[in-house]
Amino acid sequence: MDGAFVTNQNKILTCDLAPASLSMEGASVFYHDRAALEQITFCVPAGSSVAVIGPNGAGKSTLFKALVGLLPLHSGSITIHGLPLGHHKDCVAYVPQREEVDWRFPVSVFDVVMMGRYGQLGWFRRPGKKDRSAAMDCLEKLGIADLATHPIGSLSGGQQQRVFLARALAQEPHIILMDEPFTGIDASTQETTLSLFEDLSKQQVTLLTSTHDLNLAAKSFDQILLLNRRLIAFGPAREALSAATIAEAFGGQVLFLDGAMVVDKAAHKTPIHGK
């Protein structure tokens, strides 16, 4: 982890600055008196893509919610651009898990993407022509411009995913957090998403994505963050993913078969070939 660490003594209120590096230091999060995350320390260099991997209940969603400031830290700190969380207005965009969204809510696809512009708009101001065209651009980038006026309840799984990705783009963030974007979507949406990731990396946008798919994580992401309440490994796939670290993260859920490793998930099985 030798990414350029941007430090700045001045207060940063918006994200007009250089790309953001993101770091957590000794961060713990508690639900009541049970630790959901313990002593997490890592630093993501600007513009790199990180796959967050761990079994169910490992604290992946908790990690993301702490990173957007939705859950308070019990101890430790989070810094973006070297400054604590809260100094930045719309640096971080979050793409929710699809089950977290109320799909019956009376909003259109365009309405949802427009919400991404609200941060730039600020209080009381209504979206103008510039915001509308920015929102349309984001819809076009994800190939769903023709769905703009549709109610969100009428979309397929892949289209739902694209709507929230488009909204994240509309926020013009420096960091995008995505909770399980590859679960239950079609192949073409997965492809669109991955090629979007490449574009974003080129623009120095930092990506954190949780996923169950170890192969995809190893193939398409710069770094792997292996999590099971504690940080088990962090680094490029070939360093972070070993039989030992995976066994430590997944515990009883992992099986070794003829030199191949199988993570036993209720929904699907993901083989990983041993080294």
């Binding site: 207005k89 719309d90 979050y94 109320d102 809510f105 909003v107 919400m115 941060g119 909204r167």
Partner: peptide
Amino acid sequence: FDPILAATLR
């Protein structure tokens, strides 16, 4: 609609 977005927008 989205309390998490509300949080990220501060």
